[in-house]
Design a protein around this nucleic acid. Structure first.
Lengths: 110, 110
DNA sequence: CACAATACATGGCAATGCCATGTATGTCAA
DNA sequence: TTGACATACATGGCATTGCCATGTATTGTG
């Protein structure tokens, strides 16, 4: 169980990172994050959709409706230019903070 | 400039980590984080003190007033048992999330 | 037919982060 | 001696917002 602060800080980078591998839809993102995290992160849909809406409103991603094979409608999201930029920024930021922890934690037991 | 979410997620782990190296006082923590981060993180005192109060209220750290050489009063904080436990938890959590990003980011340009 | 899983949307407000502000003392240059 | 700046801590309060609860609809399945 992750702290809510860590969940909040990782959500957008995770979405951007996954979408950098190709467009995807909300429900699938939830499952993908659960899989990638080994069930450590279990987003609920009511939490993710507002995030996606906000990211689209801010111009990082763009959506299109599409029909799945089974006839069901899905809303696919794809990275926009600003989203790629944001991903790069956020990777640098995570890297920077990780470096600090690496320094602080070296030669200490977990 | 870090996102506010990342700052929020890293503040408590940073405080716990620094205090695990020995007791320290608020103002010094601000400078230490600035130094460690290469000026990337610049906490303001009005942001840190409430965090320290909350952490003490939650039993992770304990404070004592002490007089510095120059006669000035300082409030020194030290880790409590629960704080050590929290630090271990949070290290694991950071590690877990970092692993996810490592996976997602491998073989991609920054 | 009932239940679970899939799939998306959003109103609304409880919770809270932290900014702005206040207090006090030490240092140092002019 | 005085003004400016750095040091050092405290907290009221409220604007912001995260995200929960809830609603809708379709498909799969036993």
């Amino acid at each position: 169980m992750l702290t809510k602060e860590l969940v909040a800080a990782s959500t957008e980078p995770l979405v951007l990172s996954i979408l950098s591998g190709g467009e995807n839809y909300g429900y699938a993102l939830i499952q993908e994050v659960k899989r990638l995290s080994g069930d450590k992160i279990e987003w609920i849909d009511g939490m993710l959709y507002p995030v996606l809406h906000r990211m689209e409103r801010e111009g990082r991603i763009v959506s299109r409706w599409a029909e799945a094979e089974n006839g069901r409608k899905r809303k696919y999201y794809a990275l926009k230019k600003d989203g790629k930029k944001a991903l790069q920024d956020q990777r640098k930021q995570w890297g920077a903070v990780s470096e600090i922890f690496k320094q602080l934690w070296k030669e200490q037991y977990v």
